[in-house]
Design a protein around this nucleic acid. Structure first.
Lengths: 284, 284
DNA sequence: TTGCTCCTCACGTCACGTGAGGTGGC
DNA sequence: TTGCTCCTCACGTCACGTGAGGTGGC
């Protein structure tokens, strides 16, 4: 009979670990002294301890190990658990590789620009939204504010005449596939509850209703500053997408006006908080 | 001002998470109502939340994130933390790949033999040991027991004449580089305390003292059964080494007699518990 | 008034590590 | 008798999740 200290040396585990395995019933000492409560192990228990450690090495939890060891489980089930483990590890390696790319990209960004980017990119899931909107080609940046005011006016008048309430922030969409400062294909809209679509009376010319699809993988950037400088954040988002092995899944960038209504801004220089979203997918 | 529920929707985090970030001081609400204790956030806090989430995506702990965000830390330090993170992730991917190999190997082993192997392989670190031993070429398995008895007799008589106590189990070493059943190059020894080397009087012919080096990466297999069948466990160990991308670092297999003294065994069929150890290194 | 939202404990997760305070064995 | 080994609580880790039980706001 071995005392816990000797058994722990043979097995290369801490005494505390052995006590823990006793507590959870994974490896009970062969005998416990009734007076001293000393735990006594036998040499024959060493292979069991080794089996536990070997399975722990493979990444199984102690609960899984208990199942793999105690019931002499059927071979098929054992194989099943190993296959699950394989899949888990593969997924985890994939995740870590993604992480690696992101960290590396952040590092090269700092090295290139000398300071960390003010734009932090995250990934989200987004739900589908029912959008009432109007779209137009804006000839240039100078006339942007005026054009968009007209677009939003049309959208809001459609909502008002149907007595429909907005169901989220304003959403502006940019449809150009490349960065441009002329002929900007812009859509201004607002989300409504899908059940309210029927309430829409005859709408102003050019106003349409459609559903923007949900997107499992969406790149999101929070922007805080003047409306007029938002292109910086758009550039940051696309450079992130490019550097991290993604591509656009839909050819549009969404701009969510968390700050409120664009029409109520004094100028395009006023500070706002908005969110850019681009639906993406991994390249191949 | 946004209530916690609205802020949590904008940021795509749970309310509980926001409360947690408040508790640890990572993201304090802009205002807390003195009567209701309601937390109120502002839109301007959204970019900070996003930065937290982005850094969490990179795998930083909340404590690290607090440092990366709060003090406007020097760029060099920021780069340093990113490089550390890179190294951590790379090491983790390596670990997972090792794990993957082990799980895969276990699966193919079961598929090949129809049942799980009775031998569980683990990796250990082992310390250097000072060994008093005698070595001989054993012509065949039939005479193994007799030859080894003679070897151990010589070793024990050396210890006895120097009044030295053993400092661990008996260790038998197999020096053959390949599996063989004839001319087995066998060494039988016992560990002593390094300080006792001087006490050794003139020793029997063939008995020598040397230090077995420590080994960071050692493959270990616990064996329980008859001495005579131990070759099965040796084969299992070497097949594991081969399948998991390792090679032997020293051309010897150690056999640790945890069960006691080989001389006191009635026969080589008696059940014993022993451990096989092979020092290894990753290939390339 | 009825839901809805928010609040503060408090415990659980996972596999132990780290003391605190005390006792048996040689 | 003195170290050494062992014992049982009990709390800490990490980033929250999950109730319990209660209250403010429209």
């Amino acid at each position: 009979m071995l005392r816990i200290g000797d058994f722990s040396k043979l097995g290369q585990v801490s005494i505390h670990t052995l006590r823990h395995y006793d507590d959870i019933g994974l490896l009970k000492p062969e005998h416990i002294d009734a007076f001293t409560d000393y735990r006594y192990y036998t040499l024959e228990q060493l292979p069991r301890l080794n089996r536990i450690l070997a399975l722990k090495d493979l990444g199984f939890s102690l609960e899984q190990i208990a199942r793999l060891i105690d019931d002499n489980i059927p071979v098929e089930q054992m194989k099943g658990m190993l296959r699950m483990r394989l899949a888990d590890i593969e997924r985890q390696i994939d995740d870590e590789r993604t992480r690696l790319m992101r960290v590396a990209r952040r590092l090269t960004q700092i090295e290139a620009e000398g300071k960390p980017s003010p734009y932090d990119v995250t990934m989200k899931r987004i739900d589908a939204v029912t959008l009432v909107s109007r779209r137009a080609l804006v000839p240039g940046l100078e006339t942007m504010a005026r054009h968009r005011r007209a677009l939003y006016d049309a959208v809001y008048s459609a909502l008002d005449s149907g007595r429909i309430k907005a169901n989220g922030p304003e959403i502006a969409l940019y449809h150009n596939t490349e960065y441009t400062e002329t002929d900007i294909d812009t859509e201004c809209g607002i989300a409504i509850n899908a059940k309210d679509v029927g309430k829409l009376a005859p709408v102003p010319v050019g106003v349409t209703t459609r559903t923007l699809p949900a997107s499992e993988e969406t790149v999101s950037v929070m922007y805080r500053g003047a409306m007029i400088d938002v292109t910086q954040a758009i550039v940051a988002a696309f450079s992130w997408i490019d550097a991290n092995g993604y591509e656009c899944a839909q050819h549009e960038t969404r701009e969510l006006h968390h700050f409120g209504r664009e029409r109520e801004l004094a100028t395009f220089d006023a500070p706002v908080v908005l969110e850019l979203q681009v639906a993406v997918r991994p390249i191949r």
